[in-house]
Design a binder for these strands. Structure first.
Lengths: 203, 203
DNA sequence: TACGCTACCACACATCTGTGTGGTTGTCAA
DNA sequence: TTGACAACCACACAGATGTGTGGTAGCGTA
């Protein structure tokens, strides 16, 4: 009847402590025990330890003994979002407690990519709308000087203009191909500056 | 002739130290001075301090005095991507050093949203293709039980099926409206489980 | 040559920090 | 009533931690 991996509830105070820790991690550093005590109004470090033990036992965090500030969140960590595939029957609260399917925001970047090889570009205009890329979208680009036909690339045109287009090839010559039947292909000279790896759109 | 905000180069060793710090921050915690010394093979904490001072003076990091592990990266920070609007003339390396325009991955989430109110959903099918939402896209949803006409919502249909559609209204009755002229509106009963806040597509 | 800078070292020291020990009070279920 | 647990407190202590002081050596520039 008892399962270890069941979703254990937190008391109001435990949640308050957890939220403070989350905030601190988000803003910069995990707090020290005494910082937590001070924030929560506790007079003793022992009290904080009791809370950390409780949160740890309930699977919300992990600590690497002895190391200062070594609080690691396990559930609802910063930069992680539960990924739901299907919503189980009769569960009004969704299945989001599921620790397995967490979408890491870092996953958006190509794995192992050097920070210096990535940049973001605001999409202007509707020339790629048939590829599902809309005006205002943010395009994450990995820098590279070459690309393959069919790739969506960021290209630099003559006058400092950057544009996102399919890389096309016709009679051995590369050109820029929009994904919008109202737009014409661009045969002007251009430089490949990178390849599209991610599209982000905020509503 | 000398500008403070110019991009100052790093020596090879300084870059090595910076990379180690970045790694540590990425994996969990910023390192202590002694952890850096150990990793770099330095025999003295003073040496590390010299490096931190140098990196700090060059604008790569900031420290909050006296606090343990309080190293904060300013350039090329984890989870931040340079956002480029236009690419300056004659600059083959792009303008990515620009500290002002950094896209924080955390920005993808609705500001101040509680972690528990967010989840992600894989988009299946092409019913929203005219809204630029393609098969395989990841939809970030903020949980809410109600929405306004015209919002794109995640709705729960009878049999545990979740679907992403426009919320429509006809003769006072809500219905689900696809963004694809080949699809029919859905008039079956449904429950609003959340509102679309972000679309992410990986290539 | 003097100066600034990088690149190190040794060591002392005041705090910071996590942990250990031993309590108290109250609630709730068995 | 016994036991488990939440929710606190006090205090001591070893070791971690950032900082301060004072060096040495090499290199390139003015």
């Amino acid at each position: 009847m008892s399962q270890d991996n069941k979703v254990t509830g937190l008391t109001a105070k435990q949640e308050k402590v957890l939220n403070f820790i989350r905030e601190r991690i988000q803003s910069n550093l995990p707090p020290t025990i005494r910082e937590i005590a001070k924030e929560m109004g506790f007079g003793s470090t022992g009290t904080v330890r009791d809370y950390l033990d409780a949160l740890s036992k309930k699977g919300y965090l992990r600590r690497t003994g002895k190391l200062s500030r070594s609080i690691e969140l396990l559930k609802g960590a910063v930069n992680s979002i539960p990924l739901v595939a299907t919503i189980p029957a009769g569960k009004p609260n969704l299945a989001y407690e599921d620790t397995e399917n967490q979408l890491q925001l870092g996953d958006l970047l190509p794995a192992g990519a050097n920070q210096n090889e990535i940049f973001a570009l605001k999409v202007k205009g509707e020339s790629m709308i048939e590829a599902g890329i809309m005006d205002g979208d943010t395009a994450i680009i990995r820098k590279q000087a070459t690309a393959e036909t069919g790739d969506i690339i960021a290209a630099l045109l003559g006058n400092n203009e950057v544009t996102l287009k399919y890389l096309g090839r016709e009679n051995g010559k590369f050109f820029l191909k929009p994904a919008n039947s109202n737009y014409q292909p661009i045969y002007k000279p251009f430089t490949v500056i990178g390849k599209l790896v991610t599209i982000i759109r905020k509503y």
